[in-house]
């Protein structure tokens, strides 16, 4: 009973505790400039996690996010010269369409989402390799600065990435809390059969959720490409695990219906603090993956709603 009541609060308590532990051991960690820096560095990952939140919120998963981001880094690098700022629109649209494809395959063709998104991820990966000729690409520095320089500058000491993230959070939060789409997604995640029995077009909303996930993965890829001033078909590898961890640690369970955008904000910050603290405690960077893998298992085990799984396959 008490655990149940505590559960929704666990993510932010975890965050506060983690910050406190690191802060006590290294007061320098708590300097605003340091905190801002840490937050700014994680923005591309955060945006991907934000997208994944929608897929997981409806009880699905999007394993294509990383490949979509990879593909977008390549697309952005290749077409920046010819398309200018329009390349951003093109990238987001591409992500949205790939997400729609995943959603369509999942809902209309009855393929489980982890397979359909894996397959669509394969398609995205192929596109990336084809466009890049399997090489790492560089953007033209002046053109990047002219077109997308605003993305990575600072405004009054705050990294612009953070502002971009804040805008996206505001939009996603609005969708989640104030629109019919958000309400429908919640209903689909919390009780798909009841949503269908209420006359909602469940398939359409699920497709939209995957499409949003794809679009945000594309934005993540775009930002990453701008930051690194280039792209490659595997450049964002290593994003998927921490992004899934961020969503789940934040308290959106794999079974969907609960949690949401705010939870992912907290979850991403937890991931960021864990990363930073590993640095401070001089834990070898090579251990990072193993740590996140274990955190992922613990987070799923704690958050998953077993009442919703008739049999666990």
């Amino acid at each position: 009973m008490d655990i149940q009541r505590l559960k929704p609060h666990l993510p932010w308590i975890t965050l506060v505790v983690l910050v406190a532990i690191v802060g006590i051991n290294d007061p320098g960690f708590l300097r605003p400039s340091n905190l801002l820096g840490i937050a700014g560095d994680i923005v591309p990952l955060f945006i991907m996690a934000l997208g994944l939140t929608f897929a997981i919120y409806i009880g699905g998963i999007d394993l294509s996010a990383q490949s979509v981001a990879n593909m977008v880094t390549v697309v952005a690098s290749v077409y920046l010269a010819s398309m200018g700022a329009w390349v951003a629109v093109f990238c987001v649209l591409a992500g949205f369409l790939l997400g729609m494809l995943s959603g369509y395959v999942t809902t209309r063709l009855f393929v489980p989402s982890f397979i359909s998104t894996l397959a669509v991820g394969g398609v995205a990966f192929s596109i990336a390799q084809w466009l890049s000729g399997q090489r790492a690409l560089n953007m033209d520095a002046t053109q990047r600065n002219e077109t997308f320089g605003w993305m990575i500058g600072h405004t009054w000491g705050v990294p612009n990435e953070l502002l971009i993230a804040a805008v996206l959070v505001a939009i996603c939060l609005f969708i989640e809390r104030r629109t019919t789409l958000g309400r429908a997604l919640k209903a689909v995640g919390a009780g798909e059969l009841a949503a269908a029995a209420s006359g909602l077009n469940v398939a359409r909303y699920k497709i939209l959720a995957f499409a949003i996930s794809g679009a945000l993965a594309a934005i993540a890829g775009l930002l990453f490409a701008v930051k690194l001033s280039g792209g490659a078909p595997t450049i964002a590898n290593g994003f998927l695990l921490p992004a899934i961890v961020a969503v789940l640690v934040g308290g959106t369970p794999l079974t969907g219906g609960v949690g949401g955008v705010v939870n992912t904000v907290i979850g991403t910050l937890i991931v960021a603090v864990i990363r930073a603290s590993m640095l401070y405690f001089e834990i070898d960077a090579t251990r990072q993956q193993i740590v996140f893998g274990i955190v992922l298992i613990v987070a799923i085990a704690l958050t998953i709603d077993r009442a919703k799984l008739r049999t666990v396959k």
Binding site: I297, R306, L309, V312
Partner: peptide
């Protein structure tokens, strides 16, 4: 009691 796709994905990362 974690669905196998996620349990094994996480274990794969580990």
């Amino acid at each position: 009691k974690i669905p196998s796709f996620m349990a094994s994905l996480a274990m794969g990362f580990v």
